[in-house]
Design a protein around this nucleic acid. Sequence first.
DNA 1: ATGGTAGACGTTCTA
Length: 264
Amino acid sequence: MSLKIATWNVNSLRQRLTHLERLAEDQAPDVICLQETKVDDPLFPGDALAEMGYSHQVFRGQKAYNGVAILSRIPFKRRDHRIWCQKDDKRHVEVTLPGGLELHNFYVPSGGSIPDPEKNDKFAHKLSFLEEMAQWARSQTRGRKVLIVGDLNVAPLENDVWNHKRLVRSIGHTPGESQRIADLLEAGALVDAPRQFTPPDQPLYSWWGYRFPQAFERDYGWRLDHAFASQSLMPEIRRIETLRDARSWQKPSDHVPVIVELAA
DNA sequence: ATGGTAGACGTTCTA
């Protein structure tokens, strides 16, 4: 038996329903964690998703920005969320699955464009958010079966971006952000699961921007979408796949799904 | 030197 969990920043759920249908057909994930749904809860397309087989749903959205959801073929034992940085901007939702796996879905602030927290409130917010995650993980992930997934908006390792030297002063790949991801892993005794399957000396990306011409064709990618497992969960992870192909679909999201397959 | 595209929204903001 196995349990497949997908994480995907869809960059507008309503623009990506046919893409989700294709993911469901091609990969048949049991659980799908979404980020940047960009839809307020009353407009959530729950019926269309239920028709794809995902009748169990938790969603926390808002108009135009942010928003997270977890879709599932299997019922949840428990659902919850937390407010981060005293700001209810719909960046986290959590479920417990049968068997006791605690699944956290995050959308970390992107952080704007100037990598200086003194001059850029959005970057300050991002750094605080990551620090709060580490503080939280210290008490909430150790010794438990926890999987943290989502768009963390940080590519922490050199081979998580297409050109480390060129991008090391760009938001998403600054040493301060990478250090905070390392702090989160350390604080929560968490493992960067995809990097156990694809060694850190090899490139691994999940996002190719829209702006740079032919970003995907030239493989100008970043690994922004993550799966961090607690130590007790790690032995259950059978394989992890990044669906690069989804970036070449019609009207794609700028992110592709990452799939974690657990023995269950 | 500060581009380029996409999405939601509404006469711009965010990524």
